[in-house]
Deep mutational scan, measured.
Amino acid sequence: MIIKINGKYYKIKKIEKNPNGKYTITTENGKKYEFKNVKIFSEEELK
């Protein structure tokens, strides 16, 4: 799965839903981001 952050695309390693309704997304390079609204892309959609 792929996520778009600030115009760049990252591969997703893990998605966790937090009790506060936000999502914590861990990218393949180990960085964590927290979002309220998340749009996930499949690799097929990006081709």
Rank of each mutant, 00 (worst) to 15 (best):
I5E: 01
K39T: 14
K13F: 09
E45S: 13
K47Q: 13
P19Q: 12
K31A: 11
E45V: 07
L46H: 09
E43F: 03
E34P: 02
N6F: 11
I2D: 02
Y10G: 01
K31Y: 09
V38P: 15
T27P: 00
I12P: 01
I3A: 08
I3V: 11
K13V: 15
K17M: 13
F35H: 03
Y9S: 05
G7F: 02
N18D: 08
Y23D: 01
M1Q: 07
K13S: 12
T24K: 03
G30R: 01
E45A: 10
N37D: 14
K4R: 12
E34Q: 13
I25D: 00
K39M: 14
G30I: 00
N6L: 08
F41I: 14
L46V: 11
E44M: 07
E28P: 05
E16V: 12
V38G: 10
Y9P: 03
S42W: 15
Y23I: 14
F35M: 13
F35E: 03
K4D: 04
K39Q: 13
I25N: 00
T26V: 09
N6I: 03
K8H: 11
K8G: 03
N20A: 05
F35N: 02
G7R: 03
K39V: 15
K22G: 15
K14G: 09
E45C: 15
L46F: 08
I2F: 15
T24H: 04
I12D: 00
Y9C: 13
K13P: 02
K31R: 10
G30H: 02
T24M: 09
K36M: 13
N29R: 05
K39E: 15
K31S: 10
K8W: 06
I3C: 08
I5M: 06
I2Y: 15
E44R: 04
T27W: 04
T26M: 06
G30W: 01
M1R: 05
E28V: 14
G7Y: 02
I2A: 08
F41E: 06
Y23C: 06
K4E: 13
V38A: 07
I2G: 03
G30M: 01
K8E: 09
I15M: 06
K11E: 04
I25T: 00
I15S: 01
E28K: 08
K8N: 07
K8T: 09
Y9G: 02
N37F: 14
Y33G: 01
N29H: 08
K39C: 15
N37Q: 11
K8R: 12
S42G: 10
I40A: 06
N20Y: 05
I40E: 05
I15F: 06
P19R: 10
T24C: 06
N20E: 09
N37Y: 15
F41H: 08
E34C: 11
I15K: 01
E44D: 13
K32L: 07
K13R: 10
Y9H: 05
E43W: 05
P19C: 10
E44P: 09
E44L: 09
S42C: 15
K13C: 13
G21P: 00
E34N: 06
K11C: 08
N6W: 09
K14Q: 11
K31V: 09
N20G: 06
Y10M: 13
K8P: 01
K22P: 03
K47W: 02
G21A: 01
K31F: 10
K4S: 09
K4Y: 14
T27I: 13
Y10T: 07
I15P: 00
Y33F: 12
K4G: 06
V38L: 13
V38I: 13
N6D: 11
K17I: 13
K17R: 12
G21W: 01
Y10R: 04
N29S: 12
Y23M: 08
Y9I: 08
Y23Q: 02
L46Y: 06
Y10D: 02
F41C: 15
E16L: 05
V38M: 09
K13A: 14
K4T: 06
K32Y: 05
N18W: 09
E43A: 03
N20R: 06
E28I: 14
Y23G: 00
I2S: 09
Y33T: 02
